[in-house]
Nucleic acid binder design. Structure first.
Length: 291
DNA sequence: AAACCCAGCAACCGCGGCTGC
DNA sequence: TGCAGCCGCGGTTGCTGGGTT
């Protein structure tokens, strides 16, 4: 038994897209839209491609206003902050970075940003490599332009849910660390926050309890950039939780390190570390009951 | 000049969730 | 209530090009 394939794999082309295919797909979508059905789209557009492949190509490359190229420092900050707050939720991050795709962010994180933060660099492995010099400028503690000690990333939530840990159960209820609760402003009922509750506003309709957890950048402002002054999380019911949290570069590093070298039991160590350092009030953070 | 190494990135794959029947 | 189809997400793979030996 298995899932039925989404397309006839024998008859679909795989691999890199040709300019002709790109043109066909782009013109078709611009003319007719996706019609809400990616599966039938390639056939209608005259493409021998899987619908998923078309969707990916459109979303990651052909769609208008896609931004390619270097990430700015501001974007770095946003990504780091969000990673510390919500883990590897690339699509949410993408919704916070106009013009960037989840794939882009994911690749950027995996190939560059993570290494910057951890200080794992080609330089260390291969001293002759010069390219590293470049990369290291942004985040190296020795970088004079950045004021290493004071470098910090604003984190906008007290809910910490690193999802991209090596040993992560998909069943949140079995992993105490992955679910914490926040006191609702309007009542004494606790509001469970699990991964399904965090979303961009675009996706908010998917959730029923807490519709969405949204960053507030302070009134209709450009999505880019998490403001240090405005560290709020909005709950769907209009509840605002002010966190006042700000994680240092070191703490984000710690998170990365603990994620990459420890098993999931150790995630609590990071949390404990934050609590111990007064970054997170214990009283505001309650473990969800184990199920 | 050739071989090798490695980083970057596009694309694929499988799974979970949602929706309609 | 169960099933099938589809969408979207995140992890992984594999190709490519640039740098190094």
């Amino acid at each position: 038994m298995g899932r039925t394939p989404c397309c006839d794999k024998a008859n679909v082309k795989k691999g890199p897209w040709s300019p002709e295919e790109d043109t066909k797909l782009k013109e078709f979508i611009e003319k007719y839209g996706t019609g809400g059905n990616w599966i039938s789209l390639p056939h209608k557009a005259g493409l021998r491609r899987c619908g998923k492949s078309c969707r990916l190509r459109w979303l990651n490359y052909l769609r208008p206003n896609i931004k390619h190229g270097e990430f700015s420092e501001e974007e770095d900050r946003v990504i780091c902050s969000l990673f510390a707050a919500i883990g590897s939720r690339w699509s949410i991050m993408a919704s916070r970075l106009p013009g960037r795709t989840d794939n882009d962010i994911k690749n950027y994180w995996n190939t560059k940003l993570k290494k910057k933060l951890l200080g794992i660099t080609p330089f260390q492995r291969k001293p002759h490599r010069q390219s590293y010099h470049h990369q290291n400028q942004h985040f190296s503690p020795s970088s004079s332009s950045q004021g290493a000690g004071s470098e910090s990333f604003p984190i906008t939530s007290q809910v910490i849910m690193p999802r991209s840990t090596p040993v992560i159960s998909s069943d949140l209820f079995r992993v105490p660390y992955h679910q914490y609760q926040m006191k609702s402003c309007s009542s004494m009922n606790t509001v469970s926050i699990d991964q399904s509750c965090i979303s961009s506003e675009e996706n908010c309709t998917r959730f029923s309890n807490i519709k969405y957890l949204n960053y507030d950048y302070g009134g209709g402002e450009e999505q880019m950039g998490i403001q240090k002054e405005s560290k709020l999380f909005l709950l769907g019911g209009g509840c605002q939780v002010e966190t006042g949290l700000e994680y240092s570069l070191e703490e984000i590093k710690q998170l990365l390190i603990s994620n990459s070298v420890c098993n999931n039991n150790d995630h609590n160590l990071y949390l404990d570390h934050l609590i111990a350092n007064g970054k997170m009030e214990n009283s505001k953070l309650q473990h969800a009951p184990d199920f």
